[in-house]
Every structure is written in C-alpha cells, then in structure tokens.
C-alpha cells in the first residue's frame, strides 16, 4: 500500500533507523527523509531532503514526489537537541502544523503515522494505575515535550476531521530504551548516582527500540487507524530500575528537586525537566490491550526485558554489580553462620 514514504526527524537515531528499515522493504519504492540538519548516521537508501518542516517547502516535496504515506517522527524531546526551548517548540508545534497543512493539501497522501508519547497523559497522584487511550489526563502536562505532544495530537485530530479519507495512526510510546537509542531516560539511568524525589517511587514503563520501530513500520505498511498506547508489558518501579542498573540512588527532598534538576540540566548530564520530574515522582503506566488485540502486536520485550537489554548493552552494571552483591552475601553468610557455631 505504501509506495512513497516521507519520514520526518530522519537525522536522529530512531528516524534514521526507521528510514533504513523502510528502504529494506521491497514493496516501498522510495523513502524520503526530511530533517533540519543533515543526518550523522546511516539512513540507508533514503533520499535526504534538508528542509525545515517549519516552512512551506515541505508541501512541494510532498507534491513533486507524490508521497502517499507520511511518518512523522520529528517531535523533539529535549531542548538540547534543538538548541533551546523556543526552537524546540517551534520545530515541534509549528513544524507539525506546516507538515499537516501540507498533508491536507496533497491529494497523493493517504496515510499519516504520528510518533506521539504517553507523556500526553501527564503524571500525578490522581492518575489511574493504567491509562487507556480513551482516558482524559487527570493532571494535564503544563510544559515541555509533553505539552508539545498534546498540541501535536490536537492538530492531528483536526487534520483527521478535515480529511476523513486519510488513515491516521497516532502511536503513544512509553519511553524508548535499548542498546543504542540515546533518549533522555537512557541518559538519566547512565548517571553514576541517580537523583530521585525523596519519598516517592514512580512506576515506569519502557518500550524497546526494536519493538517501537516495528510498531511504526507496521502502521506504515499496514492500515491501523486510531490511537494506540505502545509500551513493554509490566512496570518497573524507579528504585527497582536503579538497582537493576547497579546505580546508586540519591533521594532529594522534593522542594529542592527543581533546583537540583536545573543544576543537572545545566551541567549537561541529563535532561531533568519539570515534566521529567513529575514522571519520576508519580510515575505513569498505560494499558496496551488495544495494541495487542486490535493492532495485533505484542512487544517482544517486556518493560523489564527492555530495561535489562539497555543495561547489558551499555555495560552499566559497574557501580554496584551483581558480583559485588553476591560476594557480599557469601561473606556475610560465612560470618553470621560462624557466630552460631
């Protein structure tokens, strides 16, 4: 069905890999990758068009290449990737508006696949344990990437209303983790000591990068209209994840977390935005029943397996390694058994 596919956000890791996966598909004639900056990695046989999706040039690309499927992966998660919050918001929101306006005009376009995020559900103490796609957020996101994602989704809904003939798939992904993807969560768990919010233990979900890309691929070559949550099954609590990564947790008193977050961010260690802090305080998990039944895909990696794969591939387990803990267990066992003898 998909013949000519346009992929936005192709210069970043996931977008580049997606372009490679799609060019390997013999049924797809042509893949066009679009981004603001030139790709640093391999984008396979995709044609690269350096275009700012914020300006109307994207419309010309759609028309001249007769694009039938648009895969929108151009929403940026952290200000650092865009060079500040203002350009980030422009790329995310204005860029999406331009792209969708072009899609609406281009008669050749029949399908739109949007990589969104479960961050649209917000995070707070009044959240249900698992969000389904129909639930409204109880604590709507107030800023950053999460709010951008909410706005992107609302523009996508607008387009779907105006072009009912389009097949629109909105994919809400949990945080990506895996051997290579350099996501904000990957940076966070790579810190040697990990700041957390004192007195809270968030429930987290991850989607393995291979599973995430497979869902986007299927949405591109098959037809799956609607909104789908995408996450590995199960949850990890934050403290448990830190222990599995062999890291040391440093709880920070909640009134000081904002200051500490700015400090970590300014130092360039990891993204610790207010939205990220809310997620790491209250946690968030989603129901993937619609993905497994209607979409027909069960992620190969559970949340736990995705996390473990990330830990092993990055060789993170070096601060408090399982060997060290087992060794300590053996020594303590000998000493304590000796007491009773």
């Amino acid at each position: 069905m998909a013949r000519v596919v346009l992929v936005t956000g192709v210069s970043r890791y996931l977008g580049g890999r997606m372009a490679r996966i799609l060019t390997d598909d013999p049924a797809i004639e042509r893949v066009i990758g679009v981004d603001v900056v030139a790709p640093t990695g391999d984008i396979g046989g995709a044609d690269f068009v350096r275009a700012d999706i914020r300006n109307p040039i994207i419309g010309k690309v759609l028309a001249t290449a007769e694009v039938d499927t648009v895969v929108h992966m151009g929403v940026i998660a952290t200000p650092r990737q865009a060079g500040g919050r203002t350009p980030m918001k422009e790329i995310n929101v204005i860029g999406t508006m331009q792209l969708l306006a072009a899609c609406q005009k281009a008669a050749s376009v029949t399908k739109l696949v949007v990589k969104s995020s479960t961050s649209v559900y917000g995070a707070g103490p009044g959240d249900p344990a698992l969000f389904t796609e129909d639930m409204e957020p109880r604590h709507p996101p107030t800023g950053g990437w999460a709010k951008d994602s909410v706005e992107v989704e609302s523009y996508v809904r607008g387009l779907a209303r105006r072009r009912p003939d389009l097949t629109v798939s909105t994919l809400r992904f949990a945080n990506f983790l895996g051997p290579t993807a350099n996501t904000p969560m990957a940076q966070y768990f790579s810190l040697p000591v990990i700041p957390t919010v004192w007195g809270y233990d968030a429930r987290l979900q991850f989607v393995h990068e291979d599973d995430g890309l497979e869902v986007i691929r299927r949405a591109t070559v098959e037809a799956h209209p609607g909104i789908y949550n995408v996450a590995g099954e199960g949850v990890l609590s934050l403290s448990q994840a830190i222990r599995r990564a062999g890291r040391v947790e440093v709880p920070i008193w909640s009134p000081l977390v904002g200051v500490a977050g700015r400090w970590v961010r300014r130092g360039g260690f990891a993204d610790f935005s207010p939205e990220q802090i809310r997620l790491l305080t209250h946690g968030r998990a989603v129901d993937i029943t619609r993905l497994t039944t209607r979409f027909g895909f069960t992620p190969r990696f559970t949340t736990e397996q995705a996390f473990d794969d990330f830990v092993h591939a990055r060789r993170l387990n070096n601060v408090l390694s399982p060997d060290l803990v087992s060794g300590a267990e053996t020594v303590a066992g000998r000493i304590l058994s000796g007491w009773s003898a």
Binding site: R203, G234, S237, Q240, L320, V325
Partner: peptide, 11 residues
C-alpha cells in the same frame, strides 16, 4: 539490592 523482584501494574 539487585532489584530482582516483581512489582505489578499498580505498584
């Protein structure tokens, strides 16, 4: 210490 336990969806 190693996080080798299970937590359900509700925590």
């Amino acid at each position: 210490a190693l996080g080798e336990y299970r937590v359900d969806a509700f925590g």
